[in-house]
Amino acid sequence: MSNPSDSELMMLADGELDAAEARALERAAGPTGTVKVAAVREVGELVRGHLELAADDAEERLSGLWDLVERRLDQPQPEGAAARPARAAAREPGVWSQLVRWFDGHRAHLLTGALSAGAVAALAIVLREEPRVEIRTVEVPAKVTPGDGGTGGSGGTQDPVVLVATPPEVESLEVNGGTGTVFTIQDDDGGSETAVIWVTPDDVLEGI
């Protein structure tokens, strides 16, 4: 085997060769190679020792840093007021300044709320039904419902708006000392009906 190269000697010093190769290389290296291998090993020891010392020095600081990171991750997001420095709290601000500060801190919320409220109000106004007062003002002209008993208007030139009538309903009737009768009288126009509740007392012989 010829004289081994420096890289082969470094591999030998680092223990990267198997036993047979290492023995063959040591024989081929001779005294000079052996000195080189020893020198390389010594330098390696020095470098490793230096790095380990540096790591030991930094370990304490790094562990504190990780503890700090973990604490920050575990804590909830601090509120604006709570996150203020202690000296600000020590100043004991007045109610007005606290109010102003609160509004400052919630400006985005207030703006969002105001915009939402405005949008909903606009939608409600656009989509809202016509006010019922219009229903009240529509009346059937007298010429359409003659003899309506007060429900007719004064007859105009416009086409009348005829409202659909619903028969009266007597939901309950309680008569004391007599007999109750319920009937309706159809108006001449056939549209509406007049409900009549009639009581015939027991002591009155004549009924209607």
């Binding site: 009538a165 939901e171 509406s192 009581v199 007392p201």
Partner: peptide, 23 residues
């Protein structure tokens, strides 16, 4: 003396008549 007690639903503007016979 309470003669009558009733609950009625009618259309707005329609007449409702409640009455009783007298001697």
């Amino acid at each position: 003396k309470r003669v009558l007690d009733s609950k009625v639903a009618v259309d707005a503007g329609d007449y409702l008549v409640v009455g009783r016979s007298l001697k």
